[in-house]
Write a protein that binds this DNA or RNA. Structure first.
Length: 451
RNA sequence: GCGGUGGUAGUUUAGUGGUAGAAUGUCUCCUUCCCAAGGAGAAGGUCGGGGGUUCAAAUCCCCUCCACCGCUCCA
């Protein structure tokens, strides 16, 4: 893993954020190749989910929503309450309620330290599993708080979105009213979300801000099992299509105590990283939890009307979540190879060509004005269609290796023969083999390679 | 959040109180008809940050930040 982090920084995929000030824990910035890779992955997903289907609508919601959204969703319930968490089953309880129920004692307004003391002295246990292992009393703040306008105004408090789902639910009515959708249908969204988790650590893997791609698939309540397995299969296929090693992937179902408050069934696709199996994507059955709560809190009817049967009901949802930032790291880990070439180490990222940040690099075999001129011309033309790089520094070996490290699948080299017969060599990243091809056929050649 | 380890050039690192070094990468020039080749030269360092001890601190002490490994948890 250290090798990947080192490569990521050396080759500008990602690196610690605001480093001149000592960095910020769990914040990373993406560099040139990192962003290109990330956006290619996003495009791949959009093609699969939006372009190739007819039943999923794309939206992009505001990062800051009306704060009531997060109250209705359950993300801020107990936000201002002092809670204890059970170390065994992770159940969270309001500390004042626990004390009042067990000891019949009014503790309203007591400071947190006092509450912790009372719980410890009286050896109070978890109301769910009975464990004695409770954390100190504290305020958990999952969501980042911010202010709209004047900080002193209490009504100014707002939250940065902690998941994409709520923005999707906020668009539900709009989509149903305008997009001629029929159940089953999905609403998709991609973008950055923020988590103010108390427990940090795990570096690039657990960050304050991360990119997600996700959708809610709205279904009839009695059909959830059917669509759950449908999306389970689709997600697996997508992971394979991205080029990930199947042997390093597995499904894992969450135990009841692990599941989020809204979910009735959750499964993760995990990837086997150098530091163990870790969650990459998730699939949750959220029932009608969110729409029903939003109906309750907002007073707006969010039921769906089946135009053919006249049936009126609150749809249930299946939620496939694709961690984009995590997928980027997974792709790097999965495609990193060290090979022995002529007794020297070759580091190469065997990334799926469709995802590669740079598709083609063009260089003159030697430093020569004529070769350079033709290379430039070819480079300029290919750039219209692909992300390309031109290079003429060092020697041919160095240029190939440099491209290997950023996963460029093809290198076009211009030599003296090129000047005579208008052909160039194309070198394949994975096999290191070359083939000579006429300039007229270059476009056709790459069209086939990247189709 | 708790416990352990560590932080020196872009990267990998040597340096245990006395003038900050190497390899590699980067840049320039020469050479070279295909895989980090050869030659010449150059740039690159708040020694993570702050404070203290000392004639003198990368080195010793305190605080802090960051990373890594366990425990815990998420996507």
């Amino acid at each position: 893993m250290d090798k990947i982090i080192s490569l990521a920084k050396r080759r500008s995929f990602f690196y610690p954020s605001s480093e001149i000030y000592g960095g910020l824990a769990n914040a990373w910035d993406f560099g040139h190749y990192g962003v290109l890779l990330k956006e290619n992955i996003r495009q791949f997903w959009l093609k699969k989910i939006i372009q190739e289907r007819d039943d999923i609508i794309l939206i992009d919601s505001s990062v800051i929503l009306n704060p009531k959204v997060w109250e209705a969703s359950g993300h801020v319930s107990g936000f201002n309450d002092a809670l204890v968490e059970c170390k065994n089953c992770h159940h969270r309880t309001r500390a004042d309620h626990l004390i009042e129920d067990r000891l019949n004692k009014k503790v309203e307004g007591l400071p947190i330290e006092e509450l912790t003391k009372i719980i410890k002295e009286n050896k109070l246990t978890c109301p769910k599993c009975g464990s004695k292992e409770l954390t100190d009393v504290r305020r958990f703040n999952l969501l980042f708080e911010t202010n709209i306008g004047i900080i002193e105004d209490k009504k100014s408090k707002a939250y940065l979105r902690g998941e994409l789902a709520q923005g999707i639910f906020m668009s539900f009515k709009q989509v149903v009213d305008t997009m001629r959708v029929k159940i089953p249908f999905g609403i998709a969204s991609t973008g950055v979300v923020f988590r103010n988790e108390i427990t940090l650590g795990q570096g690039v893997f657990r960050t304050l801000q991360f990119d997600l791609m996700e959708f809610e698939y709205f279904i009839k309540p009695d059909e959830w099992e059917k669509y759950y397995s449908y999306w389970q299969e689709k997600m697996w296929q997508m992971a394979l299509e991205l080029g990930l090693n199947e042997k390093k992937l597995r499904w894992r179902e969450h135990e009841e105590f692990e599941r989020s408050h809204y979910s009735k069934k959750t499964m993760d696709i995990e990837y086997q990283f150098p530091f163990g199996w870790k969650e990459m994507w998730g699939l949750a059955y959220r029932t009608d939890f969110d729409l029903s709560n939003h109906m309750k809190y907002s007073g707006v009817d969010l039921r769906y009307i089946d135009k053919t049967t006249g049936e009126k009901y609150v749809p249930h949802v299946i939620e496939p979540t694709f961690g984009l930032s995590r997928l980027l790291i997974t792709v790097l880990v999965d495609s990193y190879y060290e090979e022995d070439v002529n007794g020297k180490k070759r580091v190469v990222l065997k990334i799926n060509p469709k995802l590669a940040p740079i598709k083609i690099a063009v260089f003159p075999l030697q430093k020569d004005e004529k070769l350079k001129e033709l290379s430039f011309k070819i480079h300029k033309e290919l750039k219209n269609k692909y992300n390309c790089e031109f290079d003429d520094s060092g020697n041919i070996g160095k240029m190939y290796r440099r491209q290997d490290e950023i996963g460029t699948p093809y290198c076009v080299t211009v030599d003296y023969q090129s000047l005579d017969d208008k052909t160039v060599t194309i070198r394949d990243r994975d096999t290191m083999k070359q083939e000579r091809i006429s300039l007229d056929l270059l476009n056709k050649y790459f069209n086939e390679k990247f189709s």
